[in-house]
C-alpha cells in the first residue's frame, strides 16, 4: 500500500508540472478598421491596383512613416486607428487621383490576457469622405473593432 501511495505521489507531481505551463501568443495590430473595396455600379467587391494609403495625423502627432500602403493592389485594407486622437484621417491615392477618408471613433481599454496585456477596443462613430475623384460613398457595416475579430467594418464604393 505504501508503494501505491508513493507511485500516486510521483504521477500527480508529473501531471501537475506538465499541465501548469500555459503558452499565450499575442496578436498584434488588432486596432485597424477593415475596409473593402466595392464597385458602386454592381456592388460587388473588387480589386484595385496601384492604391496608396497615407496617414494624415492631426496636430502634434509625428509619424516615422506615414505611408501605410504604397501603390499596392488591394481588395481589402487594414487602416490602424489613432490612439491619441478620436479622429483618424487617411489620404487615399489611386494612380494620381486623391480622396480622403476620416474616421471618428471612441476607444475603450480592454484586457487581453495576463501575458499579452491590453489593447484598445474601438467603436466607429462616423465616417467622413471626399468624393472628388473616385470614391462614390463609404458605408459603415460593422462598428466595433475588437481584439481577435476579423469582420469587415467599412465598405468603400468606387466609381
Amino acid at each position: 500500500m505504501k508503494i501505491i501511495i508513493k507511485t500516486l505521489f510521483l504521477a500527480i507531481i508529473v501531471l501537475v508540472i506538465a499541465c501548469n505551463e500555459s503558452d499565450d501568443f499575442c496578436l498584434s495590430n488588432q486596432q485597424s478598421v477593415q475596409a473593402g473595396f466595392y464597385s458602386a455600379e454592381t456592388g460587388n467587391d473588387s480589386t484595385v491596383s496601384d492604391v496608396s494609403f497615407i496617414s494624415l495625423p492631426g496636430d502634434g502627432i509625428i509619424l516615422e512613416n506615414d505611408t501605410l500602403y504604397n501603390s499596392e493592389s488591394l481588395s481589402n485594407s487594414f487602416l490602424p486607428l489613432s490612439m491619441a486622437s478620436d479622429t483618424t484621417k487617411y489620404l487615399v491615392k489611386i494612380l494620381n487621383q486623391k480622396d480622403t477618408i476620416t474616421f471618428i471613433h471612441s476607444k475603450e481599454l480592454s484586457f487581453v490576457s495576463e501575458e499579452c496585456g491590453f489593447v484598445f477596443s474601438f467603436e466607429l462613430d462616423t465616417v467622413i469622405y471626399t468624393d472628388i475623384s473616385f470614391i462614390d460613398s463609404v458605408a459603415i457595416d460593422y462598428t466595433s473593432i475588437k481584439y481577435n475579430e476579423s469582420t469587415e467594418n467599412v465598405k468603400i464604393f468606387l466609381y
Binding site: 495590430n29 496617414s55 509619424l63 512613416n65 501605410l68 490602424p80 491619441a84 496585456g117 491590453f118 484598445f120
Partner: peptide
Amino acid sequence: ITISDDHWGYYTTSI
C-alpha cells in the same frame, strides 16, 4: 500600460 501599434507607435496609460 503600453499599447503598441506598428503604424502609430505606442500609447501609454495606467490603472
